[in-house]
Design a protein around this nucleic acid. Sequence first.
RNA 1: GGAGAAAUACUCAAGUGGUUGAAGAGGAUGGUCUUGAAAACCAUUAGUAGGUGCAAGCCUAGCGCGAGUUCGAAUCUCGCUUUCUCCGCCA
Length: 426
Amino acid sequence: MLDINYIIENKEHVKELLKRKMYEADIDGLVKNVEEKRKLQKITEDNKAEQNKLSKSVPQAKKEGGDVNAIFAKVKALSAENKENEEKLKVLESQINEILYALPNLPDEDLLEGGKENNKPIYYYKDKPEFSFKIKNHVELAESLGLIDYDRAAKVSGHGTWFYTNLGARLEWALLNFFINEHINDGFEFMMPPHILNYESGFTAGQFPKFEGDVFELKGMDPAKFLLPTAETALVNYYRNEILDGSELPKKFFAYSPCYRKEAGSYRTEERGMIRGYQFNKVEMFEYTKEDESDAAFEELLRKAKSLVEKLGLHYRVSKLAAADCSHSMARTYDIEVYLPSIGIYKEVSSVSNARSYQARRGMMRYRGADGKLHYMHTLNGSGLATSRVFPAILEQFQQEDGSVIVPEVLRPYMGGISVIKPIKK
RNA sequence: GGAGAAAUACUCAAGUGGUUGAAGAGGAUGGUCUUGAAAACCAUUAGUAGGUGCAAGCCUAGCGCGAGUUCGAAUCUCGCUUUCUCCGCCA
């Protein structure tokens, strides 16, 4: 959520930044409504103050045998007068919130305007792998190596899902454990969040009200809950409605969870297999920082995410996202994209973002600074990493002519020392 | 899933319709005394959100959350959430 006073004081600048994010909103109408609301609020509150004063005088009047009924009548009249204003206030408020709650975060000043087409690769690791033989895509590899069973998952669940089988499950588990240990070594605190979240959690994250359709709702629960689309949604709510002491920050967390998303509906060739499913595994890093320390934290998360891909030995690039391609709640996002040789494109394995105070405002998460005043925390998140993109990249980038796949060295301790995954004979 | 009880400030806790935004105790902070500490005594201690004002301040909201009754609600009514106890089921 944006600071309404900041919007009022910097109306034109806010409009300009929203334009860079390709977001259209009636800012003038919003400001006008807020001003009108404040005027009406003053009148209503003054009226209430008068009512309170009169009501408080009742016991005294009773003692002195004064005309209590006259006071009752007066208060009642004032109260009736206010009723109309209160209705109007409610309407104004809901009009304001409808716009305010849906506004995205403002992009950082240095971001390029516009969408995906303006994303800018700023770093490459290793060269594109070259193959002297006809390569297979990750779906073919996963099946011939007996790592993934899509067909039986379709029977058991439906499309957009899969079983990890045998060495596939072990490879997946190895990846997750490798990531987890790296984060523990870096001093991050391991969390395992609930997967079932309430509406307020979705609101704080910025998921609601704008993107309710993207999550799986559990309508059987009252009130309805939803399945977390990323561990970020749980972690960003950990300190909701809390005030921490500045000395407690930064808080560095990471969590493992499956991520449940509805978006897997439409398939494109490049999203076959496990590139986009209803459920995938992810280890997520999350930091709460003081407001002047989030830039350093952002660099830290980016560095950590990069190091994971590098230790696996995968060719990848880092893209600095243009304003409109950053997530709704984020002021800046860098994507780490791993190369998939079969389709010749880079796919996101990590998204590192700084939400600045946007989420903290939505969830009222503050800290008391050294100055004794309250400040909004800054929140940051970064995947570290999503396995459903790393897994295919490993298969494709490390495939051999005989159809086998070399296991990255760092994963071998987690896989009982297995260094090569060989095709299974039919 | 069923039945019951509870939720008040940093903590415990009093409070069943009226100057109660809240007694009391503990804790914390400051002070007196002391070489220092302890003890004793004294004082302070709701943070917050919103509005208004140059400011000091003032106003509104706020006793789990949300509605309602009333001139007036911590107190009465309804819905919800969470916690505890018991039963059922179960890893």
